[in-house]
Design a protein around this nucleic acid. Sequence first.
DNA 1: GTAAACTCCGTAGATAGGTACGGAGTCAAT
DNA 2: ATTGACTCCGTACCTATCTACGGAGTTTAC
Lengths: 125, 125
Amino acid sequence: MKTIGKLAKELGLGVETIRFYEREGLIKQPQKPQNGYRVYDDSITKQLQFICKAKALGFTLKEVASLMSMDGDCAKVESLGLQKLSLIQSKIADLQRLEVVIKEMTNSCRNNNDQSHCPIIDSLK
Amino acid sequence: MKTIGKLAKELGLGVETIRFYEREGLIKQPQKPQNGYRVYDDSITKQLQFICKAKALGFTLKEVASLMSMDGDCAKVESLGLQKLSLIQSKIADLQRLEVVIKEMTNSCRNNNDQSHCPIIDSLK
DNA sequence: GTAAACTCCGTAGATAGGTACGGAGTCAAT
DNA sequence: ATTGACTCCGTACCTATCTACGGAGTTTAC
């Protein structure tokens, strides 16, 4: 059993962040004894770690809530995962196209001897 | 010479967006004749297209302003470009790592016969 | 026993890049 | 001359994810 500060420290989160997740419905407000302080047991740690991991995978908080609520339904979870996967893949493709363009631009910059014009600026014009 | 609405339509931007760019210092407020309406000549079109293209390359509005102000300085522009390039490359790498993880997860989901557990949920726990 | 550290709550602010609104004035077409 | 479309300005609102603040009560350490 620990108070919010200990929990936050343990997980590397801010106290405000945990209260925020509570407000957003990701976690439940725990029992509060006479003094009004939140008191957490160990199960909350798993839940918050779940949230952090899913977030790191690029799920939004809403999606995380969704994941948590579809607890056993593998098909639904898989479908959300596949959706996320295709989003990630198209983001990768976009960025790779960008990478090529910017590479070309900076290359032409490096080969530029005309100090009165920058090929990057010119190509954007 | 055109008013803001025509200009916006021509570029596929919102009127408010142009006013917003003006407030942010990306473009200058043009002369306004007796009626108080903004009147633009063709040079503004180039400037706004520059902004749109640079934005599409992943530059923030602040960076776009920066690019526009370093007008001829090729070395500076190149350095901003290289910086952006390495940001893009590390984003790509991050996403590719993510892609692998999510692929593995959805695969294990597809091969799952145990309806009481979802491997994705389990792996996040 | 007192001072520091912790907690409570609700609300405001930050970030980026817009988007929307309201009320008033102006312009263009019929 | 009237109607509808356009413009003005300032400000508020939007998404997402926190982060900070203020004032009051509580717990802990010395």
